[in-house]
């Protein structure tokens, strides 16, 4: 039988937001960690490391996120490991986010003037110190705005996890719609909730861009 769309359905949708946020958070933290490794590899002095990281970025930027989620989810099942949808979605999104953040941050690292590298090298600072004390703190300033911008993209990307059966906001919308048959209303509300999550982030990104974009020294 067809149910009515009541406040219970509405709160079911709202409560699914925590799974969207959890998945976003895991993917962002994981993606940022791995992304830093990718960015450092892309700017490393070793050709083979740059090439490896370049290939990684090429693969993950050049294929649909949905296919990546499928491959992680069904790939794991194929080798006999049973992954729950959250783990599969988190792994897929992390790998994907790492490629994009790695590429964004590579640009930020390379935007630091050559003179900063030369001065720290001439002072005898080693790679780790040079990166930690000189290059990354300056690159981080430039990176803040585009990183928050990417986070907006990531929050919306989590909706694809619904297809491998993880019940986050979009999947919750499908469930409610299956019971109520009010697709326009249900997905309208789902979209509005995404907007409510992303809009403040977009505003924040713009604010950060103004703040860090002008003060470069």
């Amino acid at each position: 039988m067809i149910r009515q769309f009541t406040s219970a359905e509405f709160f079911f949708l709202v409560s699914a937001v925590r799974w969207t946020l959890l998945l976003s958070a895991i993917a962002f933290v994981g993606g940022a960690t791995l992304g830093l490794v990718v960015a450092l590899a892309r700017t490393s002095p070793w050709q083979w490391l740059r090439a490896t990281a370049g290939a990684y970025i090429l693969v993950f930027q050049g294929t649909p996120l949905l296919m990546q989620l499928f491959l992680v989810f069904f790939g794991a099942t194929m080798v006999g490991a049973s992954v729950d949808p959250l783990a599969a979605a988190a792994i897929g999104l992390t790998l994907n986010a790492a490629a994009f953040l790695g590429e964004i941050w590579r640009g930020c690292i390379q935007a630091i003037p050559k003179g900063q590298w030369e001065a720290s090298t001439a002072l005898g600072l080693h790679y780790v110190t040079r990166m930690r004390e000189i290059i990354l703190p300056q690159a981080a300033k430039i990176a803040v705005a585009p990183t928050v911008g990417f986070l907006v993209l990531l929050v919306k990307s989590t909706s694809l996890a619904s297809i491998i059966g993880f019940v986050e906001l979009t999947r919750a919308g499908q469930i409610v719609n299956n019971a109520t048959f009010r697709p326009f209303l249900v997905f309208g509300i789902v979209a509005a909730i995404y907007f409510a999550l992303c809009w403040p982030l977009s505003l924040y990104a713009r604010h950060l861009e103004k703040r860090f974009g002008t003060v470069s020294r």
């Binding site: 003179g115 900063q116 001065a119 720290s120 000189i134 703190p137 300056q138 300033k141 020294r217």
Partner: peptide, 11 residues
């Protein structure tokens, strides 16, 4: 070494 463009660390 001292450079033409100073290259102090701005941060």
């Amino acid at each position: 070494m001292v450079f033409q463009s100073f290259n102090l660390f701005p941060h």
